[in-house]
Design a binder for these strands. Structure first.
Lengths: 199, 199, 199, 199
DNA sequence: AATGAATGAGGTTTCATTCAT
DNA sequence: CATGAATGAAACCTCATTCAT
């Protein structure tokens, strides 16, 4: 089995698997279909991945790692608490769009992970959420949002995650609008001059 | 096959199926497991349902019908726009908790429905969402929220739906708190006296 | 799965499996081949047996149970120590011939049994060998064979078991001759009037 | 492919294969396992052997050639018929112990040989058995055993072969005891002063 | 309504073998 | 001699579904 986990080839295969798992679901996607879409024989799949299950893990992990990376980059440039919250929301939407397949799979197929895989990914997820926790805490300290027991944060993240269910990048809404409206809701603004002024 | 779709027996079977589909997923739950939990043999299942797929349909339909019913009852008693919005949010949470299995299945297994089943359920869902659309429109008319192109509504509903991922009824948060915070966010309030005032 | 372990049907299937395992080996015999020879589909096999492995167990167990039964019957009628030894040898040869398939499989495929199955069959085998131990002990007590540390018994049993490698029932040798020669060797006789005087 | 069939390297590989085939069985031992134990990659195996099957042949052939060699050496020094019989039995046990892996494989995996391989090995086996035939004939001529149609020879050889099933070199029995008891049984003696005189 | 044996297509995975490097 | 990715056939087993009883 090919142990080079970051090889270009492997990343391609993971991306293809992400698309198929997203479109058809993990259980419904057969390894034969996976292989066919990858342009190899079904037996060859198992040189790259131990298991069908390991493919699922690789897909979800790749999405999470990318989310983390984008979030860190976004925060690197933003200075004020509000700007950081906005940047984080936009980064979240950004990876939700760029790596949509992987994130949809993460949501839908979480259950199909092995216990071990899940434990590893829970760590990644916790690390990501702690970034959000921190940024919102900064907003609180700045008096932008008077209190938070994590409830608003959770609702806001949920609202964002749920966008994969209905948001289409080719529709009239821009990601920036989503991010702005969400920040407004989080900070308790009525969003007077909100989205789509020209519509 | 039992054509009496609302029989007590059938409702029991649907509830059992909902639980299993929720816990294990539709694809992973075998007809034999379903039958075993129902106390019958696998062959007998097909006297009640044409298909495995029809069981899935019945599960999701039951959740949606119940959601609609609860929403209508809640609105029946609420008069002001804000009260109606609050009532609707609470009704949504209420069915999300009462019929959690069915709603989780609806979210996760939507893809596994046949085209015909899905089309029928889309109608139900549209009917339900039009209730939300209407109530928020009333709020706009009352000047509570200056504009809305559906974005806030969608974000709010998404936030609510996502609660099935993390909300636990036996935790410290009461459903009323969730509903209140959500209404605050929707209406652009800073939620000064927010959650858990008595705790 | 059909739990009626002694059903006529099951015994037929076991006999067929014994033949195939004997001819081709356990690993080499596919479940499809098994099913084809049984006149059913490969999937149907698993109504009768949980596993391919369980079929192997059933084959070997059947041979052992039959061996025990025949030995007990033979001893039931034999009175003197020597007669009992002779009866036992002949019973051994008898089951070796009647249930040749099963016994060959027992010898060759012992390794392919699961640990659990093997443990159960070891008990059966021990019970059978204790019969031999007892009968030879009677011979010693009668002064027919002066000593035995189990060595002669083991060599004799080994000689008998090995007959499945070369003995053919349609050849010139009669089972009685085998049994007689073996008893002679065990008791230290020169077998003056030995086999096939007319050949 | 390495044509030097007697190279030191090749003999090492054959010995490793013998051990694995003996422990796990031919069918169950994968080419990858073989290669891993040999410290090479699976693809490299096929530089040394054409086939997996050829490895099996090499294993069994090596055992047989060694058996023949030891037997010839033993007979070279023994003069009287009885001494020669004893020497042969001991040589047989000797190779059974020294080359146990190969001989166990010969017994168990005979079936897995290709027809061609088997034919070649049958010749070797016949050559070996003719040695036994000859030595026993000498005993008959010397009046040590009055007659033999091959039956006693076969039983005795079977008893010896079967020892691989139960004999452990680290147990209390010495190979000489086995050989002596066997000769006694063959020659029809009661083995008064038999095994373990010193124990 | 219920049973449960039987189906048969299709699932994941293994494995001996090849071949370009 | 050695590698290791790729092959592709075939292995065991599962499972929704049917049907005679």
């Amino acid at each position: 089995m090919n142990k080079n986990k970051n090889s270009k080839r492997r990343q391609e295969l993971v991306a293809i698997a992400a698309r198929l798992f997203c479109d058809q679901g993990y259980e419904t996607t057969t390894v034969r279909t996976l292989a066919a879409e990858m342009g190899i024989q079904s037996g060859s799949l198992f040189h790259h991945f131990k298991d069908k299950q390991e493919i699922l893990f690789a897909v979800i992990e790749s999405g999470m790692l990318h989310a983390m990376e984008i979030a860190r980059q976004a925060l690197y440039e933003a200075k004020t608490p509000e700007a950081r919250l906005y940047a984080l929301a936009q980064a979240h939407l950004s990876t939700l769009l760029q790596d949509r397949d992987a994130h949809v799979v993460a949501i839908y197929e979480w259950r199909s992970l092995s216990d071990l895989s899940r434990a590893h990914l829970v760590e990644l997820r916790d690390a990501y959420e702690s970034i959000w926790r921190e940024v919102i805490y900064e907003c609180q300290q700045a008096g932008l949002v008077p209190d938070d027991q994590g409830l608003r944060r959770r609702l806001a993240l949920g609202a964002l995650n749920w966008t994969v269910q209905w948001y289409r990048p080719d529709g009239p809404l821009r990601p920036e609008d989503l991010a702005q409206t969400l920040v407004d809701m989080l900070l308790g603004r009525t969003a007077v001059a909100a989205v789509l002024p020209s519509a």
